[in-house]
Amino acid sequence: MVAGGNMHYKNLGRSGLKVSQLSYGAWVSFGNQLDVKEAKALLQCCRDHGVNFFDNAEVYANGRAEEIMGQAIRELGWRRSDLVISTKIFWGGPGPNDKGLSRKHIVEGTRASLRRLDMEYVDVLYCHRPDAATPIEETVRAVNHVIDRGWAFYWGTSEWSAQQITEAWAVANRLDLVGPIVEQPEYNLLSRHKVELEYLPLYSIYGLGLTTWSPLASGVLTGKYSKGNIPPDSRFALDNYKNLASRSLVDDVLRKVNGLKPIADELGVPLSQLAIAWCASNPNVSSVITGATKESQIIENMKALDVIPLLTPDVLEKIDAVVQSKPKRPESYR
């Protein structure tokens, strides 16, 4: 197995787990656009570039994404200990107890995910969204039960608020249980508030790590979309993404994207690589989850590793001047 020449491995937050700085997520592709044969080629391409972290969820393609990933990894004959596999529990099916973060669904959902993945454990189990209908104490106890059974090694959250993460840690500390080591928020040049402001105290207090998603803002930051032009093979051409398209492609966003292109040109790199490198260069980000439906996209995405060293303070300032999305920090966090 070839290791990527320049892949770095970072600790997942304050844990001892090492994840590749760029990782691969099955959200849009597995089961919706790809089957096992294509998945194997993509996963192998990721491994060849040093990726060791692969992200999934029970809701992706209604469970099919986990089945495809599991079967592909089995057929590739990889050693389980070489991989960091995560899945996310929240939306497991149509029944009243098939969703949310109750003890019942966390335990049943995790076991169902493991069956689909055909694995004994996942490395990281995420609570895919906060569940207002379940006490946080119940969720923290349930995830710890899963960890105690060896079905997951670590747990985290996705799209939780700083307040909810803090509550989860308060429960964990009070009961001497394991707290959430990682959050999985959306993070890109157009969406920064949570990562750069709201979560700020959590990095030092709890050692919170981040595995961020949508570094290209659903493809907008590739520069491939322009007014009235949606490539037929792109995500926004898929029916279930139509409303996402109309929301994301507003004039203001396209203006910012066009403003970033000269910065990328000056560095001699595609805009997509600049955008991914920008996310990865944030010291609080443990891993940037990338998506791809073609090997060529993975190869392009991985070149972002070479762009990270080019992001000098001067370049970052130019980027900020264009996107104007840097959150204002309160004095106390400086």
Score class of each variant (00 low, 15 high):
D35C: 01
A39P: 03
R255Y: 04
I319D: 00
E137C: 11
L114F: 04
D233I: 00
E159F: 04
Y9T: 13
H145C: 06
Y203A: 03
A133D: 15
W27Y: 15
P94K: 04
V19I: 14
S234D: 14
V195L: 07
I147N: 06
L101T: 00
L260N: 13
T139K: 07
P309V: 15
V140S: 03
E58C: 11
K194L: 12
M7V: 15
L254C: 08
W155A: 11
D82T: 01
Y199P: 14
V146P: 02
I181T: 15
Y241W: 13
V307Q: 08
C127M: 14
W169F: 06
P313Y: 12
R64A: 14
N243T: 14
Y154N: 05
H49T: 08
V315T: 12
K318M: 02
P231V: 11
I89T: 06
N32P: 01
V322R: 09
I85F: 02
K104H: 13
E196I: 07
Q297E: 15
R80L: 02
G219T: 03
E67W: 00
L254K: 12
S296W: 03
G13D: 14
G219Q: 07
R255A: 13
W151A: 01
F54P: 00
A72T: 03
I230S: 04
W27D: 01
R74V: 01
S102Y: 09
P96W: 02
R129G: 10
Q297D: 07
K40D: 07
A168R: 01
N284Q: 10
V257C: 07
S15G: 07
V322A: 09
L190T: 13
E167W: 09
S86V: 05
T312A: 10
D239G: 15
I308Q: 06
Y126C: 11
N284G: 02
Q184M: 05
A237C: 08
D265M: 00
E317T: 08
L274N: 00
R174P: 00
A264I: 00
E198D: 15
R14T: 06
K224C: 07
S214M: 07
V19L: 08
A245Y: 05
G13Y: 15
E186P: 11
V307W: 04
E196C: 12
V140F: 03
S20K: 09
S86Y: 12
E198W: 10
A142Q: 05
L17K: 07
G31K: 02
S248Q: 13
Q164S: 09
P262A: 14
A321K: 11
L208M: 07
T293D: 10
T139S: 15
Q44W: 09
V84H: 05
P231H: 11
A304F: 04
E138V: 01
G109C: 04
V250W: 01
W151F: 13
T290L: 08
E186H: 10
C279F: 03
A168T: 04
S204R: 14
F30C: 06
K318E: 12
E167H: 10
A132V: 10
Q297R: 12
N62C: 06
I289H: 00
L249Y: 02
L208I: 05
I73Q: 14
W91Q: 08
E120S: 12
P232V: 04
A170W: 06
A132C: 02
G70P: 09
I73T: 15
H193I: 15
G31S: 05
A133M: 12
